[in-house]
Amino acid sequence: MAITLKINGKNKSVDAAEGTPLLWVLRDHMGLTGTKFGCGVAQCGACTVHVDGVPIRSCITAHEDVEGSDVTTIEAASGKVADAIRAAWEELAVPQCGYCQAGQIMSAINLLETNKSPTDDDIDNAMSGNICRCATYVRIRAAIKDAAKSV
């Protein structure tokens, strides 16, 4: 039975099997492929999206559980913090292959939205759930600090 989800500010009708993770609804049903599959078990963070402003791992979140919530994906992440993060990411050339970066950015946006000047420990806590196999961590850390300064 179809349910309605609010994705990036728009109501979308979805007819997927109960329990289907939000990740696959976004990617396969809605064509929002910016949110990535990396592990399927909430270990790598590539699938991070915001639900009512809070980062969650969409690979282990049943889509029906976000009915009535606002879901924001990388494609629609916007605002002052998101702009500052993207600007810093571009300036420091953070991404290499870029595959994990949607998740990194979604985690970083929430970090700066809730903590205007994060310490190294704060960054570790907020970002250690996001794996980058290219190991862009040095630049991620620096970019978060740069973005914090500009917000």
């Binding site: 990617r27 064509g31 929002l32 492929t33 910016g34 949110t35 990535k36 599959f37 994906t73 990388i74 494609e75 993207r86 990411w89 571009e90 050339a93 953070v94 991404p95 870029g98 595959y99 970066q101 949607a102 950015i105």
Partner: peptide, 21 residues
Amino acid sequence: QTSFTIPDVIRGKGTYGIDVR
């Protein structure tokens, strides 16, 4: 020279193999 791909990637727009439709 700055990257051709990074501006896409940070907006969720790069098309990887797994993204093909």
